[in-house]
Design a protein around this nucleic acid. Structure first.
Length: 398
RNA sequence: GGGGGGAUGUCCGAGUGGUUAAAGGAGACGGGCUGUAAACCCGUUGGCUCUGCCUACGCAGGUUCGAAUCCUGCUCCCCCCA
């Protein structure tokens, strides 16, 4: 898939083709030339946060770029931020992230690594934990902290905004860019990747390296992938993400829900190719969905997922497989519908009542009247209960 | 150290003693229309044993027939002065 790229200049251009920034100008090319001259692989660094163990599509954009480096013979250094996670990141408007336990971090890191291998080549991969070097004496910390100033840190866009908005910023947060920069020192990074939101941190890493007498890393920033809402960046906290370990039908279905306006971006960032001019959005989106399922599962799963999708949403038939829910009747042989719906779909009983009132509950495809709330068990046994358009369950007598 | 401002439902944000489960918006959910796209229209959006009951406006007490609204203490945040 990688075209034959002979010279460092060609390689640099290829690597930067869908990046936002490649800094400093010519930096990547010089690194590549140096590696060739010294016959060593470049050390390409990416830091990850083990607070969330799931990798979503947005993150695979950066992973995909790392893979390109690997395909050119370079080494990827994945840094698990175990130490920083343990300290806790108080950033963000939505309160403090929980401080994770050691076991939790280990578990997350392991699952993260397994997922990353769906994109990365295990042969040219080095995984490190920043706890290896960040647990430093205060004297060392002072040395690190001296490399920058408050004004410089406050230049970072989100700090600047929050400061202007009188939102809280903890000292600890201000320290994070420096710690991340020190990671680059510790692993002697030649190149560091990140999303565009990481630009400041990546650049600061160069200053930190200089202060420690090391050559500065080149940086490459990748565009941020919009989430399935097509609006905000893909993020777990916005609930607009597609996880790489999700089942085929989920990946397929979520992809088809993507607004057309974002289709071009997904093509460019996930498939690495432009969306053909005048392409039928529906067909293009189906092709994209198949490609993504095939990438994280396999081609067979992609075909199956598409069939399952068509069956439910095009042909309006219940899915071939659906969870079974046990019916529990009271003494009169009646089943309380709100309780049944709550049990089957994890909604509250009040919510279930509302859905009933709005005609959102179907039995074998027929809308169920809101009254009465208690139905004979015989009427329900063996039938398909449906909430909304895409939640199904088969009812069975215990 | 001193002074001032603030904490409301998933989020943002009104509300300063009584039709307030709490305006408005976003999001989400259900229905319509569709390509399960977007846009658009309608409805819903704390819980429950549901014509009622319970729980809710940072936390804990108090005043009152009645408090998100008043008082006291506490926690956290922001600003100004030093």
């Amino acid at each position: 898939m990688t075209p034959a790229l002979r010279t460092p200049a060609e390689q640099a251009a290829w690597l930067a083709r869908n990046a936002v920034d490649s800094l400093p100008a010519g930096g990547l090319e010089r690194k590549l030339a140096e590696a060739e001259r010294e016959r060593r692989p470049l050390r390409v660094k990416l830091g990850i946060d083990p607070t969330a163990p799931d990798i979503h599509l947005g993150f695979t954009v950066v992973l995909g770029k790392l893979r390109e480096f690997q395909d050119l013979g370079h080494t990827v250094v994945l840094i698990v931020g175990d130490y920083t996670a343990r300290v806790g990141d108080p950033s963000g408007r939505s309160a403090t992230r929980p401080v994770l336990s050691g076991e939790q971090i280990d578990a997350n890191a392991a699952s993260f690594q397994a997922q990353a291998l769906k994109v990365l080549d295990a042969e040219r991969l080095e995984v490190r934990r920043n706890g290896e070097w960040l647990d430093m004496p205060m004297e060392e910390l002072f040395r690190l902290v001296r490399t920058t100033t408050v004004a410089r840190i406050l230049e970072r866009d989100d700090f600047a905004k929050r400061y202007a908005a009188h939102a809280p910023i903890s000292i600890l947060e201000l320290l994070y860019p420096l710690l991340q920069g020190y990671d680059s020192v510790a692993v002697r990074a030649d190149v560091e990747l990140g999303g565009t939101d990481q630009k400041f941190n990546l650049l600061l890493g160069r200053d930190v390296q200089t202060a420690y007498g090391l050559p500065e890393q080149a940086i490459l920033t990748m565009p941020i992938l919009p989430g399935v809402d097509g609006e905000r960046k893909m993020s777990k906290s916005y609930g607009n993400y597609v996880g790489v370990t999700e089942p085929p039908e989920q990946i397929y279905g979520k992809t088809l829900r993507l607004p057309d306006a974002a289709l071009g971006e997904w093509y460019a960032l996930l498939l690495g190719e432009p969306l053909a001019d005048g392409a039928n959005p529906r067909e293009a989106k189906r092709a994209l969905a198949r490609a993504l399922v095939a990438r994280f599962h396999d081609a067979g799963a992609a075909a199956t997922a598409e069939q399952a999708f068509d069956r439910v949403h095009v042909e309006h038939r219940p899915p071939a497989e659906m969870p079974a829910v046990a019916l529990a009747a009271n003494g009169d042989g009646l089943v309380h519908l709100p309780a049944l719906l709550a049990d089957a779909f994890g909604v509250s009983r009040s919510e279930a009542r509302r859905s009933l009132e709005q005609g959102g509950v179907k039995l074998d495809g027929e809308a169920l009247a809101a009254e009465p709330l208690d139905r004979p068990l015989e009427l329900l046994d063996g039938r398909v209960l449906q909430l909304g358009k895409r939640r199904f369950a088969r009812l069975t007598r215990v």
